[in-house]
Design a protein around this nucleic acid. Structure first.
Lengths: 153, 153
DNA sequence: ATCCTTTTCAGTAATCATTCCTATAAGGTC
DNA sequence: GACCTTATAGGAATGATTACTGAAAAGGAT
């Protein structure tokens, strides 16, 4: 896989050729949604992308932006930021700890093993002050793994 | 601060006395919402808590559950799980990296310094297979820090 | 260029989680 | 028990996202 060129126009040309290679259409809308995401370091949300693209394509619909962003994520051209959860969740454990999340069944396990704390993240004084650290390890739990083995055997 | 007792009923009694100490009412609804969160390791969301509590208090409203959960978080009796974002966000950088998030202005910066990768998390073989690692460092960026200094001087 | 097929787009309606608003109800104090 | 404050219930409103549907556009074959 070729790496994308760093300049915005270079990356757009890169996306164009990769879309065509993959048999997808390099539409104006797709390219402009992609441009909107790559031209900033701000990790924008869908509404921000929509407002930005609408400056250039006034008739674009919100739905197209949502679909296109999802398409670009599915194809690996952009990444979803962090881990989005549909709803707020609550934890009975108020002590600092990490989480193991099964992407298959959604189960969350606490992980109290520290080995990692704020002291590992010196060197960001110029960024500002770091107060907290949230770590999620994502994978497939042993229950789901064994179910997959049974299913494939 | 006294630590909560481990048994559910012990923790409920503990909450009751702490609420009264703090001048808050130890209502049936509050205690049952708290019970619903602490009786499971599943890190439930608001709807799950609502459905569970409704088994015991059929007239409870969804709104009360939402408010009570927020109250319990504000008072430190339970913790919010992970990091909830109102909306999906997108990242032009598809390589593995971490994020620095300013809780004040919401700005997100990439952090490519690794020093941390999956190899640090051996020892979870019995949990299952870990595929990915998401780390967020949260704090206040230098811009917001200097604004605060100006405001307080 | 014409026709056909498939993909993509726009616009509206629906859904889901959450918050806002307001009147009622409950708890604690005198 | 009257009074004051806090908490609750219920419904309406909001915001983000998805589902649905029909129109438009793009590509390929003739």
């Amino acid at each position: 896989m070729n790496e994308p060129c760093e300049s915005p126009n270079g990356r757009l040309d890169w996306l164009k050729s990769r879309l065509q290679q993959a048999g997808h259409k390099a539409t104006h809308q797709r390219l402009e949604v992609f441009r909107e995401v790559i031209q900033t370091d701000a990790h924008p949300d869908a509404e921000t992308v929509f407002l930005g693209v609408r400056e250039r394509i006034p008739t674009i619909s919100r739905n197209t932006v949502y679909q296109t962003l999802q398409f670009l994520v599915d194809q690996g051209y952009i990444a979803p930021f962090g881990i989005h959860q549909a709803s707020h969740r609550y934890d009975r454990n108020t002590m600092p700890h990490h989480h193991l999340v099964c992407v298959c069944c959604g189960k969350v396990s606490d992980c109290t093993q520290s080995g990692l704390n704020l002291s590992h993240f010196a060197g960001f004084e110029n960024w500002g002050r770091i107060d907290a650290l949230h770590l999620e390890l994502r994978g497939i739990c042993s229950d789901c793994l064994s179910k997959q083995e049974i299913a494939s055997s």
